[in-house]
Every structure is written in structure tokens, then in C-alpha cells.
Design a protein around this nucleic acid. Sequence first.
DNA 1: CTGAAAGCGCTTACAG
DNA 2: CTGAAAGCGCTTACAG
Lengths: 342, 342
Amino acid sequence: MRGKPTSLDIAHLAGVSQPTVSRALRGSPMVNEETRKRILAIAEQLNYKVDKNASGLRRQHAGTLALLLFEDPTADESHINPFFLPMLGSVTRACARHGQDLLISFQQLSDDWHAEYGDSHKADGLILLGYGDYLAYQGKLKKLVEQGTPFVRWGAVMPDQPGLSIGCDNVGGGRLAGEHLAALGRRRIAFLGDASNHYPEFLDRYRGCEDALQAAGLSLDRALQVDAESAEDSGYAAAMALLERGLPFDAVFAASDLIAIGAMHAFHERGLRIPEDVAIVGFDDIPAARIATPALTTVVQDTIRAGELLVEALVRMINGEPVDSTRLTTSLVVRKSTGAGA
Amino acid sequence: MRGKPTSLDIAHLAGVSQPTVSRALRGSPMVNEETRKRILAIAEQLNYKVDKNASGLRRQHAGTLALLLFEDPTADESHINPFFLPMLGSVTRACARHGQDLLISFQQLSDDWHAEYGDSHKADGLILLGYGDYLAYQGKLKKLVEQGTPFVRWGAVMPDQPGLSIGCDNVGGGRLAGEHLAALGRRRIAFLGDASNHYPEFLDRYRGCEDALQAAGLSLDRALQVDAESAEDSGYAAAMALLERGLPFDAVFAASDLIAIGAMHAFHERGLRIPEDVAIVGFDDIPAARIATPALTTVVQDTIRAGELLVEALVRMINGEPVDSTRLTTSLVVRKSTGAGA
DNA sequence: CTGAAAGCGCTTACAG
DNA sequence: CTGAAAGCGCTTACAG
């Protein structure tokens, strides 16, 4: 036998027809138990693997999911948001459990990705991860829906959104941050992050924090809000801009840990003490949050569960089963950047 | 037209035969320029994409590379070595440039991955990343070579290794660390990391450091070497074990940044000052190295270039072109953990 | 329970 | 330069 064995090779060796081999291998109930065992044994011995291309072609599907990670147009090559790493791990493992292969690709929001996958049968569905301007994104999502390409995205769950999303409860997370800072007696809280409908997740975090502060008789002063994207240098710049304004503040809620860490650099440079002068809360609990000095208090998202849900939802969608958007609960991990905790 | 358009649909519309469409789309030189343009225009308009399964089946290849990331059997779900993140990004982008799709998968060293990919035509070749016991790994690599599955791995370049590898110059990197510590006047240098042939990269780093110290009239005392894997808790435990020994030391060269950061925790806990009492050098320059307090002096590997080389080498190998193992140069970034730098 | 037949959508000799 | 034909290795009605 030369080259890779085929189902026909196995059929010859087992003394059955090729379709019977195919049935036996796929676990069809209409194959005699004896026959199946014989076939399985031979397949095992030859190290036979079903040809993915042939099977995919015949069944008109790929058995493959594609993970598209969107990056900031500004992001330099080496910086992928570390927040996505555990999620990627979780998605990968979940795919394996579901018997799906996983294709990954980095995309610019501007690319032609919406057409690339479905039509070529490279993947049966898409998992979309990544920050970026939501309004720019939305149009593409609509096209995907029109084309009938199954997809799930990680992000804020919103009414009237095209397609389905799995996200954390950003409002709830923001609320946790606000409650914590209020309970610590902080009064003038700054928000670093773009709080507009271009970044619905950040906006929800802002609103959640605002809710909590209002419930405590405080408010989130818009004059203390500075736009920032989820990147250290952006957080640094935002903190500097905040200081420039010359308004008093005693706490910062950063829309992400990367922003928070950048801001901490800025405060250190300017001689502000954390948490004495400024308490800081981040969002995401990336590995750096624990390592930073002082260690960063932050809102934790369950990225592992998120990855699993993304895959489950997509697989169900591909199978035509009903699926809903899901919001995952968040929790707060208190560390020294707010003067409490370990 | 219902469903995805096929090349036959385009043929009808263009008034040519289906094979001509195929030729035109693939840029065959034997198609009339006019005809090609007409076909391309129609294809564009219909948003036609070549069916990957059909094309792959006919051509007997996948147009896909698989990235296999090996994890410690001990590693908990959420901890992927952050060192691999930029490499993963780079591999992904390089694949896109080479027109290859990228499948990713996490594997245990013990899994049956060596048979999984080639035979099923899921991928034309494998990129292998990950630490782990090399001796356990080697057997699988040999099998891949026997099967004729094209693969490249990231790791120490060694004589007589099965297949090909791209790695950094670990000896050179270790030498940089040793020279730096010697130049700072440190005399008793500890090494944290498994320095055996189970971990050839760590062993090379150890040897490089040893070389440099000997050149400076010093030596790397084996009594100051403690085994550790590339993980924070392992580094922490190793540092504690080192302290237990009660031998004097004034510097630590950690085989990786994760080990170094774990060790720093241990030293902080025990009241040792860094760098006054112990200078520390790591390896990898992961993001946390910059964020740690004090910031960690470390040996930098060019992970971006590494990713590109891995893909290039694999693609050439698949095309039957000659390829060689490559060792990338390293550099030292000096930070406060050795009392110098910013 | 099993087999003969058709066909998924391409690519590639083979003719012309 | 173009077309008719074959075939990649499966899966799935259709018969029996």
C-alpha cells in the first residue's frame, strides 16, 4: 500500500464495500457489529484518517470554525491584547471537544473578511473577537447576517444587534467598581476609556459605575472622563491628559487593565501615590494586573467560560438549533491599588 | 442562482467552459486576456470563492498549516505561556502572507497528534511550539520524520535532532546574562531552571552563562542551581529551595521570565532587596518583565522574526525546497532588577 | 444489514 | 487558447 490509505483500501482488506467502511467508521447503526469491529481494527492498524477534503466536499461543510481576531489599526505587530489569550485557549479546547478544527486569523476591521470564509467552505462559522469601533463593525455584521453566515461575537450584548453575542455583564462590572470605590470613601472618580456608542462595552462599564455612584449619593463627573483605547500607551496618555485638566480626583476607574497600567505609570511619574492619592480599579484581570505595583484591583471576566460559550453557541447555530445571546456575570478582585486586599 | 456560486455558474455566465474558469481564476498563462478579465469580473460580482474542499481534494493538499502548542501536563487551563503570544501573532500573519490557512490546536505531549494531521489532509505541515521534556518529545518527532510529515519546531537547534528547528541562540543569550552580572561585580550566581538534556534550551542558557563567568574568572556553582519549569509558581518554589540551602549568592539568572518573576516574589517575601542583595536576570522579555517591580533585566528573543521563519521554513519544506535549522541572535535589555538601566 | 451508483466542485492531463 | 473527460475520496439516497 503506497501513500495514505483510503476507505477503499480498508474495504478490500475487510472484504466489504467501500460505503460499508464509511458507515462503520462514522458509527452508523446499520452496520453489523462484527463487521464494524473488523473494519475499525483494520483502520486503526493502517492509521487511517478520513480525508477531510473529500468528506467536507461531499457533506458540504468544513467541520471547521474560524476565529477572527480584530486588531486596532494602530496596534503594532507584537501587541495582542493579553486579555484574549485565555479565551483563545478556551475556544481552542472547546473546539476540540466538539470535534471542530479551528482556523485562526487576524483581521483589520476594514478587511474583506466577511466574504472570505463562508463561501469558500473554509469554515462553517465564525467567532469574532476584538475591540475596535463598534459602529464600523456593525455594517459588516449585518452583511454576515444577510449572507446567512453563522457567527458569534464576543462583546456587549445589545438590543437590535445584528446576530448574536456573548459578553460579560459590563454594567454589572462597572457597578462593582463604583460600589467599591464609593465604599472606600472616594468622592471624585475619573473614568479612563472611550465612553461612547463606538465602544459599547466601555460605555456600559461607565454607566454601571455611574449607577453605583449615584446610589451612593455621588456622581461620575463627565469632566473627569478621558477617552482611551485598550492599550498601555493610550492609558498613559489619558492619565496625563486628565492631570492636565487640573481637576481634583481621588480615584480612577479604567475601562481596561491595560489602560489602568498605563495610567499607573503616568501617576508614578508625576509622584502621585497609589492608592493614597489615587485609588485605581481596572477591568479584565490580565496577568499583568497581579504583577503591577501596587497590584491592581480589577473586575474579572470569566474568559474560560466565555470561550466555551462562544463555541457552543456557534455549533448550535450551525446545526440550526436556537441560541441566545448571553451575558456572563463579573466579579471584583480587590488588591492594593485601592488600598485594600492583598 | 441559489446557494454559493460555483465555477460552473460563472462558466455559464461567461459563455465558456468550466475548466476555463478554473484556469482564469488560478492565473494560468494559457487563457486569453479578454476572457480572463470577463471571468474575473463575473467572479468578483458573484462574490465567488473557490471551494477549498474541492480544490484540496483534487490537488491532494490542504493549503493549511497547523500550529500545535504543547502545554505542560500540569498547566492549568488559563495559563498559556505569554511568551508565545507574539509568536502566535507573527505565525498567523506570516501564514496569511503565504496564502496558507492556519489551524491551531493545544496538545499534550502524550497525545496522538503525530498521526492526526498529515493523513487526514487537514494540514500540509505542522508548526510545533512548546516547552516540555525534550526526551519525551523526541520520539514523536522521529515518527513524524518517518511518516514524511513536514514540520518545523521552535526550540534549541541541536546536532542529530529529528527534523528541523528554529530557535534562538540560547548559549549566546546565557552568555549575555553572565557577562552582564560579572561586569556588575556579582560573584555568586544562582541558576533557576532545569539544566539537563530534558530541557536543552535551559541547558544551553546555563552553559552560555557558565562560559561567560569562566571567561571572567568566575564559575557557575552547580550547588546554586535549582530545577524549575517555565512558570511563576515553579520559580517561586525554586527560589525558596535555593534560600533553604543557606548558601550565599548575590545574583540569579532565571531560565525564563516567568521563573524570574516567581523568584522575585519569593525574595520580596523573605525581605531580600532587588537588586541590592540579589540581582536578577530573566529570559524572554514577556510583557510582565517590564511591569514587574523592579523591572526585570532580561534576554530578548525576536519572536516576531521567529514566527516568520517558522512559516517560511515550513512552506519551503512542503514545496520540497531545501531548508536549514536557524538560530536567531538574542540581545540583553537592562532594567532595574540588576541595578542598572531605566 | 450491505452494495452499486451518483455526485460534491474542483484541477489536470489529453485533444484539438 | 479552449473544451470534453476523468477523477480526487468520500457520503448518501436508492435498491435489495
